[in-house]
């Protein structure tokens, strides 16, 4: 079953479309990196996924259900500034979680916070940025959901806190097999954590798919100036100097021309390459999602 499925999804605020004609199909169990420039629609997509917004057009389904009412028990959301009740103690926040979620894992949450040395009697506003993020993520994990959505979970954290937050999140994935959707504008820090990419640009999906497949399909081709290599490929971006041509391309098969060298690319390279060419897109055709709809 797909964890997240968007069909013709659009969201308009007054006159501007924050998202438009979005088709997505994210398999269960993936850790999804949602990237894109500021204002690309990342937060809007995440808020739609947790029922804070309603679509203007189309549908967004989380494990087959629109995320309202009872389906909210399937998703957890950690918003960017980790909003929690500042005047509550950590224990009281756990109590909130327990009273607001029938499946809440109170013992697990206590253990996790004890491992992280976060005292239960501390008030939320006394916690450090890292501790606050850990508490917010602990509450989300303890809800025992199938999908956790995190908006910029690593922003404003120091490197150690980043590592600890990611470690905690990945341990939860290892334990429960949950699906994670997380946004960031620093792609480098998502490399080891995510296995699925959704790149948004100007409210549309520019690239979507498993990172492994994406990396396998894209190469930087360098060769002599004034010519193009033969073979089946699509050029996304190019850079020419007097002597040399560099092509950022998606290959269908290896380039047979020995004058051209194909360099492997990192996730950051691919993302940057697409961001520089906002008109190029690459994602599985929406037909699959629609066929599912009819069946």
């Amino acid at each position: 079953m797909t964890a997240l499925e968007a069909t013709g999804l659009g969201k308009r605020y007054r006159d501007t479309w924050a998202l438009r004609e979005v088709f997505l199909s994210v398999p269960r169990g993936r850790v999804v990196a949602l990237v894109g420039p500021n204002g690309a629609g990342k937060t809007t997509l995440m808020r739609l996924a947790v029922g804070l917004h309603r679509p203007t057009t189309g549908h967004l389904r989380v494990f087959g259900a629109e995320p309202y009412g009872e389906a909210l028990a399937q998703v957890a959301y950690v918003a960017q500034d980790k909003p929690l009740y500042d005047e509550f103690t950590v224990n009281e926040m756990l109590n909130v979680g327990r009273h607001l979620n029938p499946r809440f894992d109170l013992a697990g949450a206590r253990d996790r916070l004890a491992d992280l040395n976060i005292p239960g009697r501390a008030r939320v506003h006394q916690l450090s940025g890292g501790q606050r993020a850990q508490l917010a993520i602990t509450l989300a994990v303890a809800k025992r959901v199938d999908l956790i959505v995190l908006d910029e979970p690593l922003a404003s954290l120091d490197p150690l806190a980043r590592h600890e937050v990611m470690r905690g999140l990945m341990m939860a994935v290892a334990e429960t097999g949950l699906t994670v959707l997380l946004s960031s504008h620093v792609v480098a820090e998502l490399d080891e954590v995510c296995d699925h990419l959704v790149l948004l640009s100007r409210g549309r999906v520019q690239v979507a798919g498993d990172i492994e497949d994406i990396l396998r399909a894209h190469r930087m081709l360098t060769g002599p100036a004034g010519m193009m290599p033969g073979g089946a490929y699509e050029v996304i971006g190019e850079d020419r100097t007097e002597r040399q041509t560099s092509l950022f391309a998606r290959l269908r098969e290896p380039i047979p021309d020995p004058r051209w060298t194909a360099h492997e690319l990192s996730l950051t390279d691919v993302v940057l390459g697409y961001m520089r060419s906002p008109m190029s897109t690459h994602f599985p055709p929406p037909v699959l999602a629609e066929r599912d709809d009819v069946a």
Partner: peptide, 15 residues
């Protein structure tokens, strides 16, 4: 175990 590796390296358990 995957969990032990993840606990050390903070990487995706699927990896």
């Amino acid at each position: 175990t995957a969990k032990q590796v993840v606990g050390r390296l903070a990487i995706n358990p699927n990896t």
